[in-house]
Design a protein around this nucleic acid. Sequence first.
DNA 1: TTTTTAATTCGTATGTTTGCGACATACTAA
DNA 2: TTAGTATGTCGCAAACATACGAATTAAAAA
Lengths: 109, 109
Amino acid sequence: MYAKTIGFDTDLQALAVAAKLLAHPARIAIIKLLAEKKTCISGDIANELPLSRATVCQHLQELKNADLIQGEVSGLNVNYCLNVEKWQSVKAQFDSLFDITTKNINCNC
Amino acid sequence: MYAKTIGFDTDLQALAVAAKLLAHPARIAIIKLLAEKKTCISGDIANELPLSRATVCQHLQELKNADLIQGEVSGLNVNYCLNVEKWQSVKAQFDSLFDITTKNINCNC
DNA sequence: TTTTTAATTCGTATGTTTGCGACATACTAA
DNA sequence: TTAGTATGTCGCAAACATACGAATTAAAAA
């Protein structure tokens, strides 16, 4: 029942998946931190967010599973890194939606 | 516990809320339909989507509660309409995120 | 080797979203 | 009025998401 995505266009489904990744402030915050390169270390990221280490780690894994970030072990630490290409492609998907929907809008129904 | 958004910046929370609206293909499809003005009538929208009428109605109400669309009764039908200003502001929020995160990325951690 | 430290996974509790049939509402037409 | 049609709401079930303490893993330091 849930997430009955079959029947929708593939690109629509992909965009919905991308949107879901951004549907939590913690994940947006992580992406911003990595992009601004304020910190890369898992523990530091956790310290920046008002959530427990375990929860932050969960969000990190979610972004990692989506290939939006990458983690590299460095001794006792793990350095995370934004996957720039993937992030650009997410941007492109949103841009495409906004391009289509902000052109020739003529709402008079 | 869930949705522990307190502690995050307000704009971050707002963007997460906007992203959640786009986190289902049905809702993206509805927005596209209204923007492309293929149809405005509730029933026609439902017919375009691979979901039951009740479910589509639910998604419509969700978008309406977020003030992203408006519904106007016309006899026995209800014509929906994209709230262009709100949609533009959603676009602006995403644009802002992508602007910040695609400038000066220097991932070498 | 033992201890400490950082990160992650596990288990669990709880809240949220999705989907739909059935019912309710409200307007139209006969 | 009665029947028909278009919408929307309710209530339930299932799937999913979030949060965190506790246990686990793995590397560094003592």
